Computed example of a mutant assay.
Amino acid sequence: MKSKIILSLFIVFSVMFSAQNTDQQNITKSFSAFLNQLKNKQIDQAVEGMYPKFFTVVPKDQMKMVLNMTYNNPIMKVEILSSKVNAAEKPELIDGEYFSLIDYAMRIRFNAETMNDEMRNSIKNMLVQKYGQGNVMYYKNEMAYYINAKSKAYAISKDKKNWKFLMVEKEMKSNLAKVLPKKILDTL
């Protein structure tokens, strides 16, 4: 009798752990696909993968324009060289939606060859302020910055199947406050 109870508890915990792991694996897989869309400069597809409520604050066309200016700009060529999802938290149900915090990293190349020295220094200061001193390297022979960017995003879903994403950056906090629940904002 005791062994049946222990076996039953083991099975219940195994199923619960497996479901939690599956959610996190699905989030990781979906977010990796989203990052690959950015890497491959598939801006329209990437924007479709973003959290729709964010477009009540920043219109979808404006977001497409910003991303195109970032990733398809011939003057400032920005390329995502690689990306990696480090972790996705267990989804938490808040106000009818599931939220999972994602910790991820990207290696970015920022071409600065068309800029003068003053502009390069200004860009370097901005990048160092955003990513930290040890995460920004300038290679004079390439006239390019290499950035190790560690960031966070939220995966959001109503059904734990179709995930949408929202990047979490300090400079966006006022906009995020308009679309994220207070419980999530308090953790930022």
Rank of each mutant, 00 (worst) to 15 (best):
N21L: 15
V85W: 02
F55I: 05
M143P: 07
S30K: 08
R120C: 05
K178M: 12
A155N: 02
I123V: 11
N73Q: 06
M143L: 14
K90C: 07
R107F: 11
A88P: 00
Y145C: 07
Q129N: 14
R107Q: 15
M119K: 14
V85C: 00
S151I: 03
N111D: 11
I27C: 01
L7K: 10
V66N: 00
M16K: 11
K60N: 08
V58F: 15
M126E: 06
E92H: 13
A155D: 00
Y71S: 03
Q45F: 09
Q129D: 12
D95L: 06
Y145D: 01
F165G: 01
N73E: 06
N121Y: 10
S32H: 12
K170Y: 01
D61P: 07
N148W: 03
E79D: 15
I43N: 01
M172A: 12
K130P: 03
M119L: 14
L180A: 01
K182E: 15
Q20Y: 06
S83N: 09
K77H: 05
R109N: 08
I27T: 00
L93M: 12
V12R: 07
E171Y: 12
R109G: 02
E79A: 13
S32G: 09
P91L: 08
I43C: 02
S3P: 03
K41F: 05
V78S: 08
M16G: 09
P52R: 07
E113W: 13
E113F: 12
V85Y: 04
S174F: 10
I27G: 00
Q20D: 08
K152A: 12
M106A: 11
F31I: 04
K161P: 07
M69T: 13
N141Q: 14
I11R: 02
Q20L: 03
L185I: 10
K29P: 06
I5R: 10
N135L: 01
K160M: 08
N121F: 11
N141T: 15
V179S: 00
M167D: 08
F34S: 05
G134P: 03
G49N: 14
F110P: 07
Q45V: 14
M143I: 05
A33H: 14
M106F: 08
K152P: 10
A177W: 00
S14C: 11
Y146N: 10
T187A: 11
F55V: 03
K130L: 11
I184A: 01
Q45K: 15
Y138E: 04
